[in-house]
Design a protein around this nucleic acid. Sequence first.
DNA 1: GAGTGATCATAC
DNA 2: GTATGATCACTC
Length: 222
Amino acid sequence: MQPTPKTEQELLMRANALAGMTLGELAQIANIAVPPDLRRDKGWVGQLLEWHLGASAGSKPVPDFTELGIELKTIPVGYHGKPLETTFVCVAPLIGLHGLCWENSHIRHKLARVLWVPVEGERDIPLADRHVGSPLLWSPSPEEEQQLRQDWEELMDMIVLGQVEQITARHGEVLQLRPKAANSKAQTEAYGANGQPIKTLPRGFYLKTQFTAGLLEKYFIL
DNA sequence: GAGTGATCATAC
DNA sequence: GTATGATCACTC
């Protein structure tokens, strides 16, 4: 593991130095084996970048760069720089929502400051040959935060009203709610239609590709 | 082909 | 089960 960057500038310089390199090169430096594909190693790319940038949090529920309050997210992009996948942000709280508002929600804090690192994700590029792109240190603009907040409030309203199971990934313009579990048999507690507790699949918030594509386009001066 | 719902690994 | 890291893969 590389030393933890002490300033935002140091982190950014470190991330910039990785741009243009391949995952194979980075894995060799870190002395990590490159898996044949990501089918059984979905978090591999993210963890490789965490190693190189000196992320300190490990598996703890705090930002990757705790001291800087910055979250690291890798994002798979295609040949045109467009995101190939939605981006998982955090699990959605399904109970104990009394008094919860956007300002003190987990997701807002997660997205307050994010270092996005695009990585080639086309499946026909061998993992070791995929290139890392230029990093983007981002905070939501007032417009972006408003979009996120609006979707969040709609989804949370449904959860409070016991309509979790009626929510699909089609709800929300930029933020969606989808299963986040080991498999479809996982259970967690939530509110039922009459306020009684029910068991349901754990859900997570995901940023839609349209939204992340907008970020990369808007803030990336290529 | 895109998008939604399902899934994988690992630590605690 | 929950937290971390996400992509897979089936259906439309």
